[in-house]
């Protein structure tokens, strides 16, 4: 039994002069749910395609559970379950036949293949559609078939390319629940351009842009990078007067008034919330809304991927 681990070592993929993935190195261990975040075309999918053995790296390599993806591709693929982008499936096949095919290729034989397909149907809640051709299914069901195919052999490593893209909020919620249920004792790598997804699913996030790793952090750490982290926003009568009072506070670094909302940013290492509630009480301001900002992921994302400071 090999150690559960993905080690990427200077993975590179070039198409002519275009560098899709540039010297990407990282380690992922058991229990980690890693989110690849990045704008479209950042190299997330290309990285996943290399990890799963679809594309051969131009240089560098990765080792999945001790199996090199270049020299020992089949062994590496055996421990991986992969959901390609858009969850492709053979449209004319029924869900059951498709999953049985996958099971047989994954090495289940005879009745074991039928059982594995049936178990995956149960697990992904496909009980109502097993005899339907895949092309007749809704997007949500197709995605579930794709996930069923990926988890059928109970892989130790799951690689899911945009698992919730294009689904409605209920379907998203359900797919996320399925992924969370599987996450212990496995490595899960998902790619997404949805920030909420990282927050909802992952315990680690890597922001990739132009094929390079920009940030490798926890979702909480990412949010902590937001200038809104621990800022306080309030809606109050006579905001201009309140703003001028609050900007005098030693704990406040900056006060912004935007669309009727007053946001106070804390000075380095200071806590604002208590100070502001005290000020509200002392001055008797008519506050209709008051909240402590956790931080804004979209702002962090923009700042990191575009070097933009808002």
């Amino acid at each position: 039994m090999n150690e559960l681990k993905i080690e990427a070592r200077e993975l590179c993929k070039r198409y002519g002069n275009l560098v899709a993935v540039d010297q990407l190195s990282f380690d992922v261990g058991a229990g980690e749910v890693l989110g690849f975040l990045g704008p479209n075309g950042a190299g997330k999918s290309t990285t996943m395609k290399m990890l799963t053995g679809f594309l051969t790296p131009t240089s560098g390599t990765a080792v999945v559970n001790g199996h090199d993806i270049v020299n020992d591709s089949l062994a590496a693929r055996r421990c991986i379950g992969y959901l390609p982008e858009g969850a492709p499936g053979y449209g004319e096949m029924t869900v059951r036949k498709f999953l049985e095919f996958i099971a047989r290729v994954r090495g289940f034989q005879g009745k074991a293949a039928l059982d594995a397909a049936a178990a995956a149907i149960e697990r992904l809640n496909l009980r109502s559609v097993p005899e339907q051709p895949i092309e007749t299914l809704s997007k949500g069901f197709k995605r579930r078939v794709g996930l069923a195919q990926a988890i059928l052999h109970d892989p130790q490593v799951l690689i899911l390319d945009e698992p919730t893209d294009g689904l409605d909020p209920n379907q998203k919620h359900e797919v996320r629940r399925l992924i969370r249920d599987m996450s212990s004792e496995k490595i899960i790598v998902i790619s997404t351009h949805l920030l909420e997804e990282v927050h909802a699913l992952c315990n680690r996030a890597m922001i990739i842009s132009d094929g390079s790793l920009l940030v490798d952090d926890t979702p909480a750490g990412l949010i902590g990078r937001s200038r809104y982290h621990n800022a306080v926003t309030l809606v109050v009568e006579q905001p201009e007067r309140v703003a001028s009072v609050l900007s005098e506070l030693p704990e406040a670094r900056k006060v912004e008034l935007r669309e009727g909302e007053l946001t106070v940013f804390p000075a380095e290492g200071k806590r604002l919330f208590e100070v502001i509630t005290d000020a509200i009480r002392e001055n008797g301001w008519a506050v209709s809304e008051l909240r402590l900002e956790a931080g804004r992921l979209d702002e962090v994302f923009r700042q990191i991927t575009r070097g933009e400071v808002s």
Binding site: K49, F54, L74, R77, I80, Y82, E85, G86, P88
Partner: peptide, 14 residues
């Protein structure tokens, strides 16, 4: 066209 090539060629077969 359907993208299944990615599925097929990432299964454990050559």
């Amino acid at each position: 066209r359907s993208g299944t090539i990615e599925l097929l060629l990432t299964l454990p077969l050559t």
